[in-house]
């Protein structure tokens, strides 16, 4: 037997404290924590689209501009994100190259693809298994979201460590700014999406 939907029971979930609120008693705000109640997150689809497209646009300069500038007595270089992965790979640290590749390229690209998939398919009627898989994808997005900040932290830490001195200088460059903004925008996009929309067209379907 399938469980009932909260909306059919005249109940609404408070997103802040997870209380099941009765719509008869308090239709607008949660009686326990005071947060505003919504049937679904407001304007979820247009907000998610907008934030994701903004992130996608800024992802171009994030990849084209150098993220760090390294100078020492022997050589100078200012690699882009992909360039720094290639440098590490050639230098023999394939493991670190893989970690940075996953965090800086794998995760953001996955987020763009999955968010697009969710947004495009959300209003179509699909079977139960498809709804379940897409909800699972959304939970994966929530989980991986902030790991892309890795490169920003590495840039900050390396620049803080390697200043002046005989061993050279490492400075952050503009690419890291765009990249950080991309990560924040994709996190906001994920937060503004409402996975319950996936199920809304399937109430009578089971």
């Amino acid at each position: 037997m399938n469980p009932p939907f909260a909306a059919d029971l005249n109940l609404r979930l408070c997103h802040s404290c997870k209380l099941s609120c009765s719509l008869d008693q308090s239709p607008d705000s949660c009686p326990r924590c005071g947060a505003r109640l919504h049937h679904r997150k407001p304007n979820a689809l247009s907000r998610t689209w907008a934030l994701m497209i903004a992130a996608l646009v800024l992802y171009i300069p994030a990849n084209l501009l150098p993220i760090m500038h390294t100078s020492s007595l022997y050589k100078e270089s200012s690699p882009t994100i992909l360039g720094s992965v290639v440098q590490l790979w050639r230098g023999g640290s394939w493991d670190i190259a893989a970690i940075i590749f996953i965090a800086s390229i794998g995760v953001p690209v996955t987020k763009f693809l999955v968010l697009t998939l969710l947004l495009v398919t959300v209003q179509t009627r699909r079977n139960l298994a498809s709804c379940r898989d897409r909800t699972r994808l959304f939970r994966a997005l929530e989980l991986i979201g902030y790991w892309s900040m890795l490169d920003v932290f590495v840039a900050g830490l390396l620049s803080a460590l390697v200043q002046f001195g005989v061993f050279g200088v490492i400075e952050p460059r503009l690419g890291i700014l765009f990249f950080g903004i991309v990560v924040i925008l994709t996190m906001l996009a994920t937060l503004s999406f409402d996975p319950r929309l996936i199920w809304d067209n399937n109430h009578d379907h089971e």
């Binding site: 920003v152 620049s159 460590l161 952050p172």
Partner: peptide
Amino acid sequence: VHSATLLDASLALAQGPIGLMALTV
């Protein structure tokens, strides 16, 4: 010897045009 704390990592990003990232970090 040179060392870095968490705060140093943020401050290092504050130089130049990317101060916003220093605040975020």
